[in-house]
């Protein structure tokens, strides 16, 4: 910039460009000659110091960004009833506050307006509520103590909410989706199946689709009501490609005795011979065979 003089240049001097001191002004002096101590120019002297702090913060920030990937769960499913909702952390205190009996139910107006609205408005209008000349916080006991109490409340509510969430996760045995997703992704890559993207799983085509075990037995036994008419999955998991994951014996056992909460036992409904045939057919459902 134009710091050095060049005799061929026409330089317009505009005098000392620091903001002129106005005779009558209740605004603080724009330069700090009135204050004791060493002041220095904004650029480059002071800004350099501020940018040193900025450099440190950026390094820390980038380390965090590289070390901890941004979480991404499963695609939104409005009918997922087991999902435990969780707002972003800076809304947790509000979320927790509105759980308390005197802030919810019949008192929701108190919770929304009294406990959330009024403090926010008070904060917005703080300069008009705390009008004294004194600036030091220990000489403003009311303002300072209100702020400290609010801070303590916010910290406490946030902690309680987070603790409750962790408790719910543990109680229901839920792994947060973004973590579960990473685990499944790693498994999928290890198996050589490539990256795992929820909802984009490739379901292999059906092998020997004309087999009686499928066309008659499985239709009669109403397997398709849960596993889908093309065995593409529904309430129950997809069965195409099941042969890669389960052996014939495991399949036989699952049909015979049921599995988990969803799968009923078919002992009695189907003959052992029928189950045997279905299990055999299912065990042939391999991705490699479908290609």
């Amino acid at each position: 910039m134009a710091h050095k003089h060049d005799p061929n240049e026409k330089i317009v001097y505009v005098g000392d460009s620091r903001i002129r001191k106005r005779a009558k002004s209740n605004v603080s002096p724009p330069d700090y000659t009135a204050f004791p101590g060493k002041s220095e120019a904004f650029i480059p002297n002071f800004l350099l110091k501020e940018w040193m702090v900025g450099v440190v913060v950026l390094v820390g920030f980038l380390v965090l960004v590289i070390a901890e990937p941004a979480p991404l769960g499963y695609p939104a499913d409005p009918l997922n009833s087991s999902f435990i909702p969780m707002p972003d952390w800076y809304f947790l205190f509000l979320y927790q506050l509105l759980k308390y009996p005197y802030a919810s139910g019949d008192y929701i107006v108190l919770g929304i307006l009294g406990l959330s609205g009024i403090p926010f408005i008070a904060l917005l209008l703080a300069p008009f509520l705390d009008t004294g000349k004194e600036r030091r916080f220990y000489r403003r006991p009311i303002a300072s103590s209100l702020m400290l109490v609010s801070l303590a409340a916010i910290a406490y509510l946030t902690w309680v909410s987070w603790d409750h969430y962790q408790h719910e996760l543990a109680k229901n045995g839920v792994i947060p989706e973004h973590i579960e997703r990473e685990i499944k992704n790693e498994e999928s890559i290890e198996k050589g199946l490539g990256r795992w993207v929820p909802g984009k799983e490739k379901i292999p085509a059906m092998v020997e689709a004309e087999d009686v075990a499928f066309t008659e037995t499985m239709t009669q036994a109403a397997c398709i009501t849960c596993h889908g008419s093309e065995l593409e999955g529904g309430v129950g998991p997809a069965l195409r490609g099941i042969g890669d994951a389960r052996s014939k014996e495991e399949l036989f056992d699952a049909i015979m005795n049921g599995k988990g909460e969803g799968m009923p036992p078919f002992k009695g409904t189907l003959t052992d011979d029928q189950i045997e045939k279905v299990a055999t057919w299912l065990s042939k459902q391999k991705a490699a065979a479908a290609e």
């Binding site: 910039m1 134009a2 317009v12 505009v14 460009s17 620091r18 903001i19 724009p30 330069d31 700090y32 000659t33 204050f35 004791p36 101590g37 060493k38 002041s39 220095e40 120019a41 904004f42 650029i43 480059p44 002297n45 002071f46 110091k49 501020e50 702090v53």
Partner: peptide, 20 residues
């Protein structure tokens, strides 16, 4: 120049300077 000099040259007091 005046605009630029105003931004660059305004004095920043000691009490906000982490170097001090």
């Amino acid at each position: 120049t005046p605009m630029w000099r105003d931004i660059a040259d305004h004095e920043v007091p000691e009490h906000v300077n982490p170097a001090h």
